[in-house]
């Protein structure tokens, strides 16, 4: 009951402080491992932005935008994890990565998946990247 109230109240009494400050922004990256002790050699961005989107695609996305909205949800989950470990958000990101990688040709010796959250920020004149979370490796679905 208390949790339900906590979920409903921000909708009934919204803060409306959109973009009050522009904080460091999360990127989700995943890797595949043969063993839990292996040091990851290559990290892949989860659902990276396309290089370009045409004006026609932008207009079409006003009406149909499921992939982008899911990407925004993943960003929300990453921010929730950064605020304090949130098993629900870890689960949501893990589920999506495992589902995505089932379509990839994966080397047979890679049996585990791990993801990390890298926060990108503007530090004076250049962009900096800081890893703030590393997930526990989980078995892939294959």
């Amino acid at each position: 009951m208390l949790k339900t109230c906590a979920l409903i109240l921000p909708a009934l009494i919204p803060s409306w402080r959109f973009f009050q400050t522009v904080e460091a922004s999360p990127r989700v990256e995943w890797t595949l491992l043969a063993t839990a002790r292996e040091t990851p050699s290559k990290w892949h961005p989860l659902r990276p932005c396309p290089e370009t989107v045409t004006p026609l695609q932008m207009l079409a996305r006003l009406f149909w935008n499921p992939a982008r909205n899911d990407a925004l949800y993943i960003t929300s989950c990453a921010e929730r994890i950064a605020l304090g470990l949130c098993p629900h958000s870890v689960g949501e990101i893990t589920t999506r990565i495992l589902r995505d990688i089932t379509t990839l040709p994966i080397h047979s010796c890679t049996k585990l998946m791990q993801f990390r959250l890298v926060f990108v920020a503007h530090n004076g004149t250049e962009l900096t990247r800081e890893t703030v979370f590393l997930s526990t490796p989980v078995a892939t679905l294959r």
Binding site: F19, T21, V22, S25, C49, E51, V53, A71, H122
Partner: peptide, 17 residues
């Protein structure tokens, strides 16, 4: 500067360009 940061590194722009 804040709007610059939104475009420069936030997760919001729909395309890298």
């Amino acid at each position: 500067a804040a709007l610059r940061d939104v475009f420069a590194f936030s997760a919001y722009p729909v395309a890298e360009n």
